[in-house]
């Protein structure tokens, strides 16, 4: 695997109210996962660099979402779930005692497949929810809310109804609200689990634009079933596959262009050309 060089020349993000680094380097090392006695993922090694959007592709049930959930310790919320290996955030093991669990999840944010804003809260409160949850005090709360909504490309649509309940937004707006909510706690990494699978094409395009705008500010890892989407938004791509009754493995990974135009493995070629999955 050839990881792109870290680009230290890229411009700082507009961060009046959003302090924080420009994105962290996340690395899965020999990650294997089980649900009970069933092994669903085996020996996954992927390095997700800052300034790069990494796409995880593969057919359903190949373990890519499971892998994504190991990256911010959501995997262990399933009572019977276990894992082996380690996940390094800027070189520190997130499963070790060096990093607090809540700190891991704050620094590695997540956007879910189904938009999950807090329906009873207002739009503004949703954006600021992470601050309350992490006990962070911010001098300019309104400024942070505006900056986060702008970064998620939602500001112009909701600027006049910040006090309206979030449940009234459309699905695409709710998803961008969730992105804004994740960005408000200034994460180093943003994990996205099929963020557009429940959305219409217009909303999907808005989210893809948002991803491209964010990629210099925060490391993005996206699981997607949509091959065009992987090509449009990602620079690095990993193809997961699980043979019948076997755990999922990474079959091939590399620069997205190369993976799609000149795959090394015939299974990758079959998948990216739509012959199965």
């Amino acid at each position: 695997m050839t990881a792109p060089e870290l680009d230290h020349t890229r411009p700082m993000a507009p961060q009046e109210a959003v302090p924080g680094p420009m994105g962290g380097v996340l690395e899965g090392v020999d990650v294997s996962c089980w649900f009970g006695s069933r092994k669903v993922l085996e020996g996954v090694n992927i390095k997700m660099d800052a300034g790069v959007v990494t796409a995880l592709i593969g057919p359903s049930g190949c373990g890519k979402s499971t892998f994504l959930r190991t990256l911010n310790r959501m995997h262990e919320l399933v009572p019977i779930a276990t894992l082996a290996g380690s996940v390094l955030l800027d070189g520190h093991d997130i499963y070790g005692v060096g990093l607090r669990l809540t700190e891991v999840r704050r620094r590695i944010g997540m956007v879910f497949q189904k938009p999950n804003p807090f329906p009873a809260m207002t739009i503004a409160d949703n954006v600021a929810a992470g601050l309350k949850l992490t006990g962070k005090k911010v001098a300019d709360r309104d400024g942070l809310i505006e900056a986060s909504l702008r970064r998620a490309g939602l500001w112009n649509e909701v600027r006049n109804r910040l006090d309206a309940p979030a449940g009234g937004l459309s699905g695409g707006q709710q998803q961008r609200l969730c992105i804004a909510r994740s960005l408000a706690v200034s994460p180093d990494v943003l994990l996205m689990d099929e963020p557009c699978s429940a959305l219409d094409p217009t909303s999907t395009r808005r989210i893809e634009e948002t991803i491209l705008e964010l990629k210099d500010q925060v490391t993005i890892v996206i699981v997607t079933h949509n091959m065009q989407q992987a090509q449009r938004v990602s620079q690095h791509c990993a193809f997961f596959l699980a043979a019948e009754n076997e755990p999922g493995r990474v079959i091939e990974q590399g620069p997205t262009d190369r993976l799609f135009s000149d795959p090394n493995d015939p299974r990758t070629a079959d998948y990216v050309n739509g012959r199965f999955g």
């Binding site: 809540t102 879910f112 999950n116 809260m121 949850l133 992490t134 706690v185």
Partner: peptide, 27 residues
């Protein structure tokens, strides 16, 4: 209480208690 909202709260770096006060109890 909807699990996906609970996970949303945890994924923001919330503690379990934060999740309870922001999702479970309002629900």
């Amino acid at each position: 209480a909807p699990r996906h909202e609970c996970e949303g709260a945890l994924a923001l770096g919330g503690t379990r208690w934060g999740m309870i006060t922001s999702v479970v109890l309002p629900f």
